[in-house]
């Protein structure tokens, strides 16, 4: 009974990590499972073998690579999936030419195999030929335009290369395909912020919060966006110390408000009632921004008040400075 319990624990821990890229932990739990319980895993055995194989490739662990390959080969010899794995093993060992040959052969037999096509992207990436990698990704996406994994990969490469407008396009695609995915929405919001679209960025942060209102990234994002848009009109105490080298001074926001409304900079409670409609709409905007900021600060405070530790104290201090 105890053994079964351990098997279940190991299996659970392994499965939790299967979708993350933590080869050290996958190898740790997977190897124990395989060593101790391989005859009791039945159908799951092969999935586990595959994951352990890939983790072993990442870690460079020769013995586990060989063991997993031979175990998989004994059951799936000649299958396309196995051959793709053989290619990946070659990639991990640095034999990019060999891997390329394997993939090309697979594509001759099965030209619609998207997974193998994407290995070419990995080949370029592994050889650090990033320009060709991006080229290939773009061509791939012209043909397989709904492949979200490829869009995501391209977006990440653009971000790391600081091509933010192109990255924004990629993440727009991702939001279009799956607008309920908070990761896509928040990354999109962050990209919008990075490219200066503070209003839109705030909207997407709010959207993420509609889905999950404890999302701290989105809460902070709203505070930052409002700071960029309205600056001192929203924050009782300007948080200039909190953001070194802000890219834009708070007043040069994208809003059309040019009237420098007399709604007092330092008291959040004042709402000026102005005769002209443009002023009132911008004041309404400011009012919403102020209320939103206040509520976001309150939510953040709520979260951090319950957290123990020195880091929570410094966070609460920062929030205090901002007016929580």
């Amino acid at each position: 009974m105890d053994e079964a319990g351990t098997q279940m624990t190991l299996l659970r821990k392994l499965k939790e990590r299967m979708s993350t890229r933590r080869p050290d932990e996958i190898l740790r739990y997977g190897s124990q499972l395989l060593r101790r319980y391989s005859n009791r895993l039945h159908d799951e055995l092969y999935t586990i073998l595959e994951h352990v194989l890939l983790a072993a490739c990442d870690m460079g662990h020769r013995q586990w690579i060989d063991y997993c390959m031979s175990a998989l080969r004994s059951k799936f010899a000649g299958s396309i999936r196995l051959r793709r794995l053989e290619g990946m093993v070659k990639e991990a060992q640095g034999d990019y030419q060999g891997a390329k040959q394997i993939y090309q052969k697979i594509l001759e037999e099965k030209p619609e195999d998207m997974l193998t096509r994407k290995r070419f992207i990995a080949l370029y990436k592994g050889q650090r030929r990033m320009a060709e990698c991006v080229d290939y990704l773009n061509k791939y996406l012209e043909e397989f335009v709904t492949d979200t994994e490829a869009w995501h990969e391209l977006g990440e490469i653009y971000i790391s290369d600081n091509c933010l407008s192109k990255a924004t396009f990629c993440f727009e695609e991702l939001v279009m395909y799956d607008h309920r995915n908070p990761y896509y929405v928040i990354t999109y919001a962050e990209l919008l912020y990075a490219t200066g679209e503070y209003e839109l960025s705030r909207k997407y942060y709010c959207f993420a919060l509609e889905m999950d209102d404890r999302n701290t990234r989105a809460l902070w994002g709203i505070l930052l966006a409002n700071e960029q848009l309205h600056g001192s009109k929203v924050f009782p105490i300007a948080s200039s110390a909190a953001s070194p080298a802000t890219d834009k001074p708070p007043t040069s926001s994208k809003r059309k408000d040019g009237h420098g409304s007399s709604s007092a900079a330092n008291s959040p409670a004042t709402q000026s009632v102005t005769p002209s409609t443009t002023q009132s709409s911008s004041t309404r905007e400011e009012h919403t921004a102020r209320v939103l900021t206040k509520m976001a600060l309150a939510k953040l405070k709520e979260v951090y008040v319950r957290v123990k530790g020195g880091h929570a104290q410094s966070t609460l201090a920062v929030l205090q400075d901002m007016g929580a």
Partner: peptide, 12 residues
Amino acid sequence: LATVEQRLVQKW
């Protein structure tokens, strides 16, 4: 998302 801020404020 045109009025998402107001919606969020109302919800909260």
